[in-house]
Design a protein around this nucleic acid. Structure first.
Length: 885
DNA sequence: TTAGTCACG
DNA sequence: ACGTACGTGACTAAG
């Protein structure tokens, strides 16, 4: 087998690591106050690469300084860059140390960039028959790809890379790796600060390179081009293009003092590496090597525990005041999961058992139901539901590790206690994946010692993390969010899940058999049109029929082939009758699979109800989500799908379904947080907001008629504003030209200047602080706000402005839910809250309580928070969820 | 396991 | 010039 060479672009990976993990910068400092995040990220990358690639030779190349032969020939090369942050500069010497301890060579050469070192060695390696892997954060290096050199460019974070081979370059750009140089010469490079030819961007550059092969050949045949602005620019900028080509070219013959034979990969230098990790405070890397964080300190705090049996429950008397508790339910669905065991304790004594039946016995049941003994748990909702199945009402929960951790950083939303603990730098517990395995191999260990140790470690982690997490919540001003909203909401959600919603299986079955007949009809029609039978559900087979056999025009491509999505098919509908049939087939098939068979599968046979689970610690915005099944996406928009709702019925005869929803809550939140006077005024006047927006942005008089089309467009603009608008996106959606869409947006900002200011301010806030907040201080970190990639940065900017809006709306309904449940309890109403669908609450109630709900629910919902504009709530009632009026 | 599609707010 | 609206979950095909 060919020898393998690993070449790493040191500077670019360190930069990537630093900015990719920038939001965690405070988490990574060693005891001397040195920032270590880039060093850590670099090592993550290194380990990841070495997992998959086993080099015989390895080198990390660094830039030697700012001055290079390129700056000598072009003074502005890489000019205008922000200066490297001090927090990053200080880490560079340690990266060199890490490289050495990891057994790799490092090298830098005065007057040359790391690229040139890599280019030169990759060439030497190619000639010597090596297989080379180049790892970099810089796309420019893809010009080095060859039959024996693959270039891995970091894609997201530091370990997720995209591998460029000549074939992959060809596929992505349609040119050879070498031609990337010509492309860059023409288009320039903003980050390296050289201009290229005026008005030529990537698209034009690729076109020209495909046509002429190279910059030189282009100028040899420049006369072949038709007269155009582009041609004028090309002629004008010929010197620039030729100079840029030199700048863009990575050297393959830099005067290195080293060569391949000096680069033997030595493998990890264990002693050195351990010393280094200890100096850096890298506990997780040390743990992986089975080394204690500090010499002399114990590796893992030992656990001692008592196994509980029916005979020694009396020992629990020593627990009082505060107890951490953990009930192991190995399956995600805690409505149905078996119980594998439990553990509890108070920080000094730990108890454990496999037998969940013991929980029903007095000492344990009393402890769990006690309102004076406070409980700390991981996932309170799962525990409330699980214990409810055992006839136990868990009371007095103070601390929910999962919930607190989610509020601190919505990205740390793992359901694995061990992983969550790790996020908070706690290493005395292993992850479930480590102990139980994953996938099909996942199982509770037979060995008591292994299993009990793990359970006790988990419950101890809950106990130990309580104080530090409460401190962090406090620092973030998130204590009220935790105490007054999320924790009480957990109980409300548990109650809704336990109550469940009654679904009539027979109704679904009847619909199912009708749909089945219709599907068979449509199917044969499609086969007839296609002239053959095929699997309509397979996009691959379907696109073969549409775009190859029937030769319909390709509108859009996906990563893997032709797109057959709705918007594409709609454009093709009048070209072939089969398209309409496919659209209908898709619609019916979706209903059949997801909503008929899907729902039938999850009706509990014991009570004919569906018990969803609301995920409270998942979304990045603070919304809930619903799984097993998802009851937040039951069809409503199309009349045929809407019929599904006929199966959702009250659980008692003589009861009805009652529903209230917020009207335009997100736009009202927008009016509130932007403080925009015009938008607020429109809401205070109780106007039809889309109509009044139309009046403003289309400059219509106060009495002018607003036709449906105008209102529709204004509505799209309103949505667009909330989502972070682009003229292109708006144009697509409402079928106008991009210029028109642009004008609409400009008019909007002129009419609603407060909104424009909010958008700018919010993005600035995110850049400065690395996160954005809702009205209740719910946080979302946005590391990509500093991303180099236009795409990723733009996405972060859109989410920066959308999250406070969507998230504050989520805050509002959460508060309403807590107060609503309180009202139902206090008034001892029989009515039950069943569902939350983001801006809507669904109840079931005896008929005689409906008038009460009609008054009470809107009252509670619109007074949940006090905004600068009124909240509006609409209510409906009916015999099924379908019949609401 | 991933991608494509489509259901919802 | 870039590439295109925010947040979700379930199903099917195919690697």
């Amino acid at each position: 087998m060919a020898k393998q060479l690993l070449l790493i672009d040191g500077n670019s990976i360190v930069f990537r690591a630093f900015f990719a993990m920038h939001n965690q910068i405070d988490k990574f400092t060693n005891k001397d106050g040195l920032h270590t995040v880039a060093i850590y990220g670099f090592k993550l990358m290194l380990d990841h690469v070495l997992d998959n690639f086993h080099p015989d030779a390895a080198l990390v190349a660094f830039d030697a300084g700012k001055k290079t032969f390129r700056t000598k020939m072009y003074a502005d090369y890489k000019g205008g860059r922000n200066k490297t942050p001090e927090e990053l500069m200080e880490q560079l010497p340690y990266v060199h140390q890490l490289v050495r301890a990891s057994g790799l060579h490092s090298y830098e050469l005065k007057n040359y960039e790391a690229d040139d070192i890599i280019g030169t060695l990759a060439k030497e390696a190619d000639d010597a028959g090596y297989e080379t892997l180049v790892v970099t954060g810089d796309r420019d290096l893809t010009q080095l790809a060859s039959d024996h050199t693959t270039v891995a460019v970091t894609h997201k974070g530091v370990t997720d890379t995209e591998h460029y081979t000549p074939a992959h370059v060809e596929e992505k750009l349609g040119i050879t790796p070498k031609q990337i140089i010509d492309m860059k010469a023409l288009m320039g490079d903003t980050s390296d600060n050289y201009p290229g030819v005026t008005k030529v961007g990537e698209k034009t550059a690729i076109k020209l390179v495909k046509q002429f092969g190279s910059v030189e050949n282009l100028y040899d045949h420049i006369d072949d081009l038709k007269k155009s602005k582009m041609k004028e620019h090309l002629i004008e900028d010929e010197d620039v293009a030729r100079q840029c080509k030199t700048l863009a070219t990575i050297l393959r013959d830099a005067p290195l003092e080293i060569s391949l034979k000096d680069l033997k990969y030595e493998g990890e230098q264990t002693e050195e590496l351990i010393d280094f990790y200890q100096q850096m405070g890298f506990k997780s890397f040390l743990a992986k090597m089975n080394v204690a964080p500090e010499e002399g300190e114990d590796q893992v705090k030992p656990v001692t525990y008592t196994e509980l049996t029916a005979d020694n429950l009396g020992e629990l008397d020593q627990l009082s005041g505060e107890v951490s508790f953990y009930l192991e339910m190995p399956e995600a669905n805690y409505h149905l999961s078996p119980f594998a065991g439990f553990a509890l304790g108070d920080g000094s004594h730990w108890f454990v058992s496999r037998d969940a039946e013991l929980l029903k016995q007095a000492p344990l049941k009393k402890l769990l139901e006690s309102t004076t003994i406070h409980k700390n748990v991981f996932n309170a909702k799962a525990h409330i539901v699980g214990l409810h199945r055992l006839g136990i009402e868990l009371a007095a929960v103070d601390f929910d590790l999962l919930l607190a951790s989610y509020l601190l950083n919505t990205n740390d939303n793992s359901n694995d206690l061990g992983q969550v603990a790790l996020e908070h730098d706690y290493h005395d517990v292993r992850t479930d994946e480590e102990v139980y395995g994953k996938g099909a191999k996942r199982a509770i260990p037979d060995d008591d010692e292994t299993f009990f140790t793990h359970l006790v470690q988990k419950v101890r982690a809950i106990n130990d993390l309580k104080a530090p997490l409460f401190t962090k919540l406090n620092q973030n001003k998130q204590t009220p969010l935790y105490t007054d909203i999320e924790l009480p909401l957990t109980r409300v959600l548990a109650k809704m899940e336990i109550t469940g919603v009654h679904v009539d299986a027979q109704t679904l079955k009847n619909m199912g058999s009708k749909l089945k007949e219709r599907l068979a009809d449509i199917e044969s029609g499609i086969y007839e049109e296609a002239g053959e039978e095929f699997n309509i559900n397979s996009t691959k087979q379907l696109s073969h029929i549409l775009f190859e056999k029937l030769k319909l025009p390709v509108i859009k491509k996906t990563k893997t082939g032709y797109s057959t999505a709705v918007d594409v098919l709609e454009k093709l509908a009048d070209r072939a009758p089969i398209v309409e049939q496919i659209l209908e087939y898709r619609q019916i098939a979706k209903l059949q699979s997801t909503y008929i068979t899907g729902l039938l599968k999850v009706i509990h046979s014991s009570d004919q109800k569906i018990h969803t689970r609301y995920l409270q610690t998942l979304t990045q915005t603070g919304r809930l989500s619903s799984v097993d099944p998802n009851l937040q996406n039951i069809p409503v928009r199309l009349p045929e799908g809407r019929l599904i709702r006929q199966a959702f019925v009250p659980s008692h005869t003589g009861w009805q379904i009652f529903s209230s929803d917020y009207s335009q809550v997100e736009l009202r939140v927008l009016a509130h947080i932007t403080g925009d006077k015009n938008l607020q005024e429109d809401f205070r006047n109780g106007e039809d907001i889309h109509a009044s927006t139309a009046r403003r942005i289309f400059h219509l008089g106060p009495d002018a008629e607003i036709d449906r089309n105008m209102r529709r467009r204004a509505k799209a603009v309103n949505f667009g504003i909330v989502y972070g608008i682009s003229d292109y996106g708006l144009a697509q959606r409402i079928h106008v030209t991009r210029a028109q869409a642009h004008e609409f947006i400009q008019n909007y900002f002129k009419e609603f200047p407060g909104v424009k200011k909010y958008i700018d301010d919010t993005i600035a806030f995110a850049r400065e602080h690395g996160y954005v907040e809702t009205i209740t201080h719910r946080r979302r970190y946005l590391p990509d706000i500093h991303a180099k990639s236009f795409n990723r940065r733009s996405f972060a900017e859109r989410t920066a402005m959308n999250t406070p809006i969507q998230g504050s709306a989520a805050d509002i309904i959460k508060i309403a839910m807590i107060r609503m449940q309180r009202e139902l309890d206090q008034r001892q109403l029989k009515a039950k809250m069943l569902l939350q669908i983001h801006d809507e609450l669904v109840f079931e109630a005896p008929q005689d309580e409906i008038p009460v709900l009609k008054k009470l629910v809107p009252q509670v919902m619109d007074s949940a928070v006090k905004l600068d504009v009124p909240l509006k709530v609409d209510s409906k009632v009916g015999d099924t969820w379908y019949d609401l009026k």
